[in-house]
Design a protein around this nucleic acid. Structure first.
Lengths: 350, 350
DNA sequence: CTGTTAGCGCGTTCAC
DNA sequence: GTGAACGCGCTAACAG
């Protein structure tokens, strides 16, 4: 760790005023040359201003611009956990699209606490972001929900845009993920592959994403008159460790009748695979497992994880486009959730 | 995908002025009640202001505050790729610490392009962030380096703080990661475990982190009079796919004399493991493999990946503290890089 | 303790 | 085309 810092002379940043003076023009001319929308400035002056700006290391004060213009160039992104690959990929997409639009992304993490989420939205609102993207998981029974709704309503009433990812929250735009349909298709595919004994690892009760996926999966089973025994539906945390713990519970309960476990997301599935292995069993052979999301590591675990692919980066980009009304090609199509069968759910000879 | 938006009446956000009027007090009193540092406001007035603010859904305009105060509450974070678990974890740490300090994080991705990085720093500077944290990988031969240095110098001259993560860049503060020492310790541990035939997958030439790790690893081998044949040092991209491709190259070259591969980071190692497996070999048995970073999935691949643990979340937090001068307990200690031997490098009977 | 006023850095009418 | 002047929302002296 090195400590340094060239704080010899700490002169204030050059202002537009400084630049104008240096260039020998008026403030207005300087402003027009550097940012002005409809260019109508003498080329010679323009050059003088540009030179002065360069010489003074001028950098326009975005806050001041925002105040003067009455509109910022910021988009606020709310996720549950940045380190979770699901959110990290979404964030990457949002940042990329924002960069494309010349916008700046500010990021906050709810850490899966809806009180925190409310606080964050409240505080983020102070930035007057053009857009607020809420990717953090919604829950059905949320006590802070109405307060959040009120906060977002106020934000929108002031001209802000809101986009949700995943759950479709009443009056707001959202990139709907076809959680239910994807899970249903997965269930059908697994039945097709010969599986009959099912278990599920899903998030805490009320977590929308988890509920939708479980619901879809059950619907897919129901189509073949199959179901999951209540004791085989475990609801640990919606994380890697949750998956591990949940799978342990299942193993301890006895895995006799279970031949495949559906984890409501890939990080849980990955944790579950480790639990299976730690129990002395072989995932894919002794018990099959499937996840949801198709995070990058799904390919790299052993055996490779069957899952439902969501184009998460694209989802992030699309969320921003949706909020901004800058629709691109294909944006009207629903986000495809695609079943990807890999070796963690081998076809069963029956 | 749902489109909505309650843009019935788009009234401008309530201003402090509105609140003051509503509460029947002066602007100053309103300001003091809502944000003022040293509280010295009649409790009754205070309550009136708070009530008015609540009634009007008032949210202080951070941009205006920044302009008036001459200082923002923003920290800018630059990473190479948000979706990469290495950077995602660092980002999570920065965001958490920032939240702790009441600061807001804006995030940008260089996508490993130093031209882009320069552009981003330039543009981020417009936010007048309190701190700029550069986690994106440095390279030795960077043509944009001097321009970047100049930009950062200007930023610091204006009172901004800069913190690097990883490489120690000349006059700036930085959280030094003990890449060389960690890799050296790993090499020694592998020699100790009985390995003799080494190969390395490292990033593009000039990439500081990659060079440091490789250098350290070689130093560790040299201590036992061992080395790596030049043709066994492959330099693919510093990514998962780079690791995969690099390992394929190695396999095609013939893996006869190689009994362990050192990948310069875990995502590469994970890719390499898949390549090994796709070649019909078993990682850890036919060829051992070790990585660096200890990303979460290192535990969940098969066999679990030996690596050098870096407390990345903590690194992110510490970077911010370092820049802010809010040193915490243990912050004076160097970041420990700790060798973690797992089953991907079993002890070799010789 | 409260209110008035002058800025903060910039965009943008409005006359010239 | 250019410049002077006002306003954006807020903070911080400065007087009362």
């Amino acid at each position: 760790m090195t400590v340094g810092g060239t704080n010899g002379e700490r002169r204030a940043p050059a202002t537009l005023h400084d630049v104008a003076r240096e260039a020998g023009v008026s403030l207005a001319t300087a402003s027009r040359s550097l940012n002005g929308s409809t260019r109508k400035v003498n080329e010679e002056y323009r050059q003088r201003v540009l030179a002065a700006a360069a010489k003074l290391d001028y950098s326009p004060n975005l806050s001041a611009q925002a105040v003067a213009r009455g509109t910022s160039t910021t988009v606020a992104l709310l996720v549950a956990d940045i380190a979770d690959p699901y959110f990290a990929q979404i964030a990457a997409g949002v940042v990329r699209e924002a960069d494309h639009e010349g916008l700046i992304v500010t990021m906050a993490a709810t850490e899966r606490d809806s009180e925190r989420e409310l606080e964050l939205v409240r505080s983020l609102r102070g930035q007057r972001p053009r857009v607020m993207i809420l990717a953090a998981s919604r829950r059905a029974d949320d006590p802070a929900a109405t307060a959040l709704a009120e906060e977002l309503r106020a934000f929108e009433a002031n001209g802000g845009r809101v986009a949700f990812i995943g759950a479709t929250e009443a009056p707001h735009r959202s990139v709907a993920l076809d959680n239910a349909a994807g899970a249903e298709a997965l269930a059908r595919a697994l039945v097709q592959a010969g599986y009959r004994g099912f278990a599920a690892l899903t998030g805490a009760e009320g977590l929308r994403t988890a509920e939708d996926r479980l619901g879809g999966f059950l619907a897919g089973l129901a189509a073949s008159d199959l179901t999951i025994a209540p004791e085989h539906i475990v609801r640990p945390a919606f994380t890697r460790d949750g998956g591990y713990d949940g799978m342990r519970t299942l193993v301890e309960l006895g895995i006799g009748e279970i031949d495949v476990v559906f984890a409501a997301n890939d990080v849980m599935a990955v944790g579950a695979m480790s639990a299976i292995r730690d129990a002395g069993l072989v995932p894919g052979r002794d018990v099959a497992i499937a996840g949801f999301d198709d995070i990058p590591t799904a390919r790299d675990v052993t055996p490779p994880l069957s899952t439902v692919r969501l184009p998460l980066e694209e989802v992030g980009r699309r969320a921003l486009r949706l909020a901004l009304d800058t629709i691109g090609p294909g944006d009207d199509l629903p986000v495809r959730a695609e079943v990807v069968l890999r070796a963690s759910t081998p076809t069963r000879a029956r």
